[in-house]
Amino acid sequence: MTASRTPEPRRLKLLAPLAAFAGFVIFAITGLFMQNSDLPSAFIGRQAPQTPLPALMDGEQDFNPQDFRGRVTLVNFWGSWCPPCREEHPVLMQLAREKTFDLVGVNYADRRTNALRFLSSFGNPYKTTGHDPTSKTAIEWGVYGPPETFVLGKDGTVLYRHIGVLTGDVITSTLRPIIETANAQ
């Protein structure tokens, strides 16, 4: 009679971390090649979450998505601690000069003093900025991490979500056509 051979417990203990590492590598490589459009957003085609926030700056209008109705609005989630947000900021400063939409910000997971210092140093492109230090609003919007930008139609419907740094190419090839279509409606 031949005994069936079972894996030794020691061998299994060695293979488990290797299998976990292999799974992580596959997950990471997949993420590198994933496009922004591959990341789902439950809000596309639906009303933006109604998440009022106090204004970051004294004298600024509070952040309230209901107030954005009637104009196409870009909602940009950012943090002073976020290196890609610094990279994106000059593009936002250029976008702010355009009159076909409003650009508003949500500063999240940040200290008010750090956020104000950031805007003082690099310029303030936003019509208003909500302060979300607990990230509750970012979570309600489904934000993965900064920077993220949402395009809202005149009726408050989420038309598009961009995850990552806005570049000139993204604005030209993706955002402007969406904004133009939304303004024509």
Rank of each mutant, 00 (worst) to 15 (best):
L56E: 03
I139H: 08
V165F: 08
N76W: 13
T129E: 08
V75R: 15
M1A: 07
L18G: 14
P84D: 12
G59K: 05
W78P: 01
K13M: 12
M34W: 13
A42T: 09
Q185Y: 06
R10Y: 01
G145V: 09
V151Y: 13
F27Q: 14
E87A: 06
L152I: 02
E8S: 13
Q50F: 06
V75K: 04
H162R: 15
D38V: 04
S4P: 06
T2G: 04
V106R: 00
R10A: 08
L103K: 04
D62L: 07
G145F: 12
T100K: 09
P65G: 07
E148R: 00
V106I: 12
T30S: 05
T113D: 14
F68V: 00
T30Y: 12
T113Y: 01
G70L: 00
T128M: 06
V72L: 15
S4Q: 11
R46W: 07
A96Q: 04
A96D: 09
Q185H: 12
T6M: 10
A22R: 14
A48C: 07
E140T: 09
Q185T: 13
F33T: 10
G70N: 00
Q35Y: 13
T129F: 03
T113L: 04
I26C: 01
P83I: 01
V25G: 06
D62H: 03
L103P: 00
D169N: 15
L116W: 05
